[in-house]
Design a protein around this nucleic acid. Structure first.
Lengths: 188, 188, 188, 188
DNA sequence: TATGAATGAGGATTCATTCAT
DNA sequence: AATGAATGAATCCTCATTCAT
C-alpha cells in the first residue's frame, strides 16, 4: 500500500521545529525546519498542510509533554503540600532541562496562528495540574477565584522562576524552593 | 546630526506603531505603520534608521509610561501596604485602560529584536516600583531572594491578572483585589 | 510493453480530465484529475507518461467524438444542402449538450502542449466533415481557396454559434439556423 | 514629490508582457516579464498589484489597439462596402504585422483571469467596428440576429483568416480578399 | 501493477531599506 | 527634510514526476 506516512518523519519535523523556532522564533522558514529534520521542504507539507497547522500541533505536543512531566511522579499523599511540591519541582526541572521546548512554547503561546481550539486543548492538557491546584487551595483565600485564574497565576510564577533558574544556574534550587514557598503562601 | 525636525512626527510614528503592532503583531509592515502615522514610507526611516530601532524605542516608551502610571499617586505613607496597593491598582488599571499599549508591549517583550541594553533600560524604568517592592518585602520570606527575581514574579502576577480583568470585565475589581492579596501574602 | 491492464481506468482518467479541465483549466493538477477518476496519483502516470501526453490523447479523443457526432446521421442525399444542414445541426447540438467536453476542447486547442502531430491528427478526424464541405462549396466562390482554410472558417463559425446558443438557450435554435444560412451563403 | 511613477516603465512592462506571453503563454513568470522589461521583479508590482491585474490591463490595451488599427482610415464613404473592406483589410494587416500582440491577445481572451468587467470594456472598444458592421448588414439576412452575435461571427472569421495569412504569407492577400467576400456574402 | 509518500524546482507576492526627485 | 518609487532577497506553498513498498 505504498510507503506509509512515517511516524518517525513526523516526529523529526516536530523536533526540528522545536529547535529552529527556539533559536529563530516563529518567523523561521519552513525550509529551514525541513532541512533540519532531514526532509525535503515539500515533504514537510505532506505531514502538515500548512505552517500554521505545524505550529498548532507543535503547541499541543509541547504543552502535553510539559503537563506530563509535571505530573510525572505525584503520589496522592495524604497531605496536599507534598504533591504540589513534587509537581512544582518536576515542572520547573523539566523546563530547565528542556530549554528549547520551553522557548518554542513561549513563542507559540503568543502566536496569532494558534487557534482558539488549540488553546482550549492546551488547557485540557493541564487539567491534571489544575485538579491538584484546586485541592491545594482548599477553602483558602483563593477559593472563590476562578480556577483558571489561579492556574494562570501559578503558570506565570513557574515561567518566571524558570527564567531565573536558567539565568543563574548556581541558585536554581534556591529559586525553585523560594518560589514554591511563595506559591504556597499565595494559595493556602 | 541635529535632532530630526518634528518631534510630533516621531510621536505619531510611535503611537501608530503601538496601534498597528497591537492589532497585527510584530510582523506589521513599516509601510503600514508609516501610513497610519500619516507619514511617508521613507520618512519613518529618517526618524528610526531601522525597524528594530523603532521597536526598541517603542518598548522603552511603553515600559516607561507603564511605570509612570503605576507610580502615579503613591504617597509615601507610614505603612507599606497602602502604597503597594495603590501601585498595584494604578498599574493594573492603566493596563486595562490601555489595551493597545499593553498588547504592543506584550509582543515587544518577547521579540528577539529587543536588545539586552533595552531590556536593561526597561528594568531601570521600573526602579521606582522595585524600590517600593523592596520596602514591602522588608525582612519577610522573600528578603533573601534577588530583588529582580521578586520584581519579575510581581510583574508576572500583574500581567496575568490584567488578562483576566480584560477577559471578564464584570469581575475586574475582584480580580484586582484578589491578586493583590495574593501578592501581599507572597511578599510579606 | 503490453497494453496497461485496465481500459476502464484509462477511460476514467480521460473522463475525469475532461471534467476537471473544463472547470479549472489546463492548470489543473494531475493529482486532482487522478482523484476525480478514482485512481491514485501515481497510477495516472502508468497510463499517460506525462501530463502533456494525457492532454494530447484527450484532445484527440474529444476531437474525434465531436467529428463522429457531427457526422452521425448524414445521409448522402442527392442534394448537398440537406447533408450539410444535418451536419451543422448535429455538430452544434452535440456541443451544446456536452459543455464540459467543449470547454475542455477549447482549452486544449490553444495549449502549447498539443503537438503539431496531434493537431494534424485532429484535422484528419475532421476529414469526413471536410469532404462534405468540399462537396458543398462545389464550384462556388470558395472553390479556389485551400480546403483547410474553408474548414477552419466553418469551424470558427460553429464555435462562435455554440457560445451564443449556450449563453442564450431561449434562442438556441434561431442561432443555429441563422448561422447555417450564413454559412451556406458563404460557401455556396 | 519623490520619483513619479514612470509611464515609460508601465509601458515597458506591458510590452514585455506581450512578448513573453506570446511566446510562453499565460503561465509566464512575472519575474521573466519584469526582467524582459528591464525592471526588478518587485517593481512590476508597484505598477500592477497582481498578475491578474496586469493581464486585465494588457487585455484592454491590446483590444483597444486592435480596434483603433482596424478603424484607422475608414472614410465614411457613401456606400457601405468600401468602409467595411477598409476595416477588414486594416484589421487583418494589423494582426499579421503584430503577431505577438495577436498571440498574447488570443491567450488572454481565454483566460479565467480576465474579469467580466474587462470583457465588457473590451466589447466597448469594438463599438466602432460594431457600428460599421451594423450599417453593413442593413436590412439583410442577419438583420434580426443580435448585433453581438454577428460581431462575434465576424471576429471568428477574422481570427481564422489571420492564422492562414501568417501560415502562408505567399497568399496572404488572397486569403484576405477571399474571406472578405465570404463575410460580405454572409452579412449583406 | 497500484499506491501514495518523497522530491525540489519554481512562482506570486511581500517588505525593509535605499535613493532619485 | 520629505516623499514614494525601486530593489531583490526571502517566504510559503504547489505540483509533475519518481520510487519504495
Amino acid at each position: 500500500m505504498a510507503r506509509p506516512k512515517s511516524e518517525d518523519k513526523r516526529s523529526a519535523i516536530l523536533a526540528a521545529a522545536t529547535r529552529v523556532i527556539a533559536s529563530q522564533g516563529l518567523g523561521a522558514p519552513t525550509a529551514t525546519i525541513a532541512s533540519e529534520a532531514g526532509v525535503s521542504n515539500g515533504s514537510l507539507f505532506t505531514y502538515f498542510p500548512t505552517k500554521a497547522d505545524l505550529l498548532n500541533h507543535l503547541y499541543l505536543e509541547l504543552k502535553g509533554e510539559m503537563a506530563t512531566a509535571a505530573l510525572g511522579d505525584v503520589s496522592a499523599a495524604s497531605n496536599v503540600r507534598e504533591p504540589l511540591l513534587a509537581l512544582w519541582t518536576q515542572w520547573l526541572h523539566w523546563a530547565v532541562a528542556s530549554p528549547e521546548k520551553r522557548r518554542a512554547l513561549a513563542h507559540l503561546a503568543v502566536s496569532d496562528d494558534i487557534t482558539p481550539a488549540s488553546r482550549e486543548a492546551g488547557h485540557q492538557a493541564m487539567a491534571g495540574i489544575a485538579k491538584l491546584l484546586d485541592r491545594s487551595r482548599g477553602g483558602g483565600p483563593l477559593c472563590d477565584a476562578p480556577l483558571g485564574f489561579v492556574l494562570a497565576l501559578m503558570n506565570a510564577l513557574a515561567d518566571t522562576t524558570v527564567d531565573f533558574m536558567i539565568q543563574d544556574p548556581g541558585h536554581a534550587e534556591d529559586h525553585c524552593r523560594v518560589s514554591f514557598d511563595a506559591l504556597w503562601r499565595m494559595v493556602s
